[in-house]
Design a binder for these strands. Structure first.
Lengths: 122, 122
DNA sequence: TCCTCACATTGATGAGCGTCGATATAGAAT
DNA sequence: ATTCTATATCGACGCTCATCAATGTGAGGA
């Protein structure tokens, strides 16, 4: 087994045999990572993904009453997931009389992925 | 089977006041939503986000030993998160002697977001 | 061979989440 | 006011996950 020094990005020290370059670029700040993770967590559930696709895929707005049946979950469960999406900033809502209407917040999804992409390409 | 107006999801009032416009476009298929959610779940943890940014942000590959200290978690915890990222297809790895090297799988992150974006714009 | 180091796995624990039934709240209509 | 409907909240259950100490595994080195 012949290991040439150009094969591996190893910075081997004479005494300690280091495996790694001296310093890595700093990772995401813990606070920013926590905020990003919260955003992705809102998309980490199949029911919420289907809800979000249902809302964002329509022209205009969607009434909450029309989302219970296609999702196949109980009304309290749908309401809970809508709240999670709302608190994640992915959807907005407005009460009009008896019903509540939801719509996707433009650019919020792309902002999430862009933030991670920026941290990766830094 | 009889199709009556009570079968419709639309509750159209006499003056045209309705809560639901008509049929909604079908949501994400449950199977596709589950697969997507699994991918986003890998990014829904601050420790894993920092790990992924650490790996994808470097030039070349990263030794596992160099990720324990910057993350501030125990070695088993880091190993667990690396496994989750690996099984989500976000990173790949190779053992070289004593050490294990990790690198980001190109295009996997953008594929995730593109799939959701396609479902939304359909 | 035995020892050491790097990494993975196991087992346990505590916290958090998805789910639903029951209930509360808000608005509209009678 | 009473009642009905749509939505939100509460309480509880079961399950999953993040975490770490202890242990296992696999690869050099003496």
């Amino acid at each position: 087994m012949n290991i040439s020094q150009t094969d591996l990005p190893v910075e081997a020290g004479p005494d300690g045999a280091a495996c790694c370059p001296a310093e890595l670029i700093p990772p995401l700040e813990a606070a920013e990572a926590a905020e990003l993770a919260q955003g992705f967590a809102a998309l980490a559930d199949p029911a919420r993904l289907r809800l979000f696709a249902l809302i964002a895929g329509q022209e205009g707005q969607v009434c909450a009453c029309s989302m219970v049946e296609p999702l196949g979950k109980s009304q309290p469960t749908v309401s809970h997931h809508l709240k999670v999406l709302y608190e994640a900033g992915l959807v907005d809502r407005e009460r009009r009389g008896t019903w509540v209407w939801y719509w996707a917040v433009p650019g919020r999804l792309s902002a999430l992925t862009a933030t991670l992409g920026r941290a990766v390409n830094a």
